[in-house]
Design a protein around this nucleic acid. Structure first.
Lengths: 129, 129
DNA sequence: ATAAAATCTGGAGCTTGCTCCAAGTCAATA
DNA sequence: TATTGACTTGGAGCAAGCTCCAGATTTTAT
């Protein structure tokens, strides 16, 4: 599968795909004899993984470190586990920040729905701005 | 309340506080007659709000737009409501990405816990990398 | 065989969101 | 009153994560 097909499938630019490879976020992709990238099943799995983790907000650096450990072989299981636990903690915390903000937004939106109707914006004192 | 006390209370730098004000993420802060910032109750509410929204991942630009509408007065209720709904949708989506990644991470971590014990790393084919 | 389209590489450039710095002002203390 | 320390501003600098570009190579279509 050529790079164009991959970037269409995942709605990601060619530049970003090449950048991910150069940055080590995915291992070196298979090539045709002409030197063009030829994404195999395995490569696509790595691309999906990178997109998923990046969408959740994990850093390029962290993903590259995982790939580095992966390529180092079976002596790095515990380091990889620790890295993944670290990643989980990071995004779990982010999820909590989001939940807090969501509930605040829900409150504010309800106040604005009312304000749009009545022409008056009111805040319950128990709530922050 | 002076700027130092505020940044200590919220674990945020003086530079960031001044930047938020300059960027319009919070309205202009009250001043002493000497020209120093003097954060009143109202100012602190805005600071808290900015920190909460930024932590959830909302952009400086979006927060500044809200403040702009706020300062424009009561004719902007519906625009502010729409902006907040937009914000909610953004971070709701982000929360979903995180949840997807969390469940993938949980699976991978469990595989690595096992790998660390047994020396062998296995993937269930139903799961992605 | 040749033109056009796709891909390659290395490196420069861009955007966001801070972060740091210099030079000046204000305030409290010795 | 002099000095020290906190605060001010405008602007430069920085890190992350792309994004764009130029010039070369490969592939496809005519």
């Amino acid at each position: 599968m050529n790079i164009q097909a991959v970037c269409e499938r995942y709605h990601i630019s060619q530049d970003t795909l090449r950048y991910y490879e150069k940055a080590g976020v995915i291992p070196a992709v298979s090539r045709t004899k002409g030197g063009k990238r030829d994404y195999r099943e395995e490569d696509l799995k790595w691309v999906e993984n990178a997109i998923c983790m990046r969408n959740a907000g994990l850093s390029i650096e962290m993903l590259a470190e995982y790939v580095r450990l992966f390529q180092e072989g079976n002596d790095t299981f515990s380091q990889r586990r620790d890295l993944l636990i670290d990643a989980r903690e990071q995004i779990q915390k982010q999820k909590e920040e989001i939940e807090e903000t969501l509930s605040l937004l829900d409150y504010k939106i309800s106040r604005y729905e009312e304000a749009v109707k009545t022409g008056v914006l009111t805040w319950d004192e128990k709530h922050p701005r």
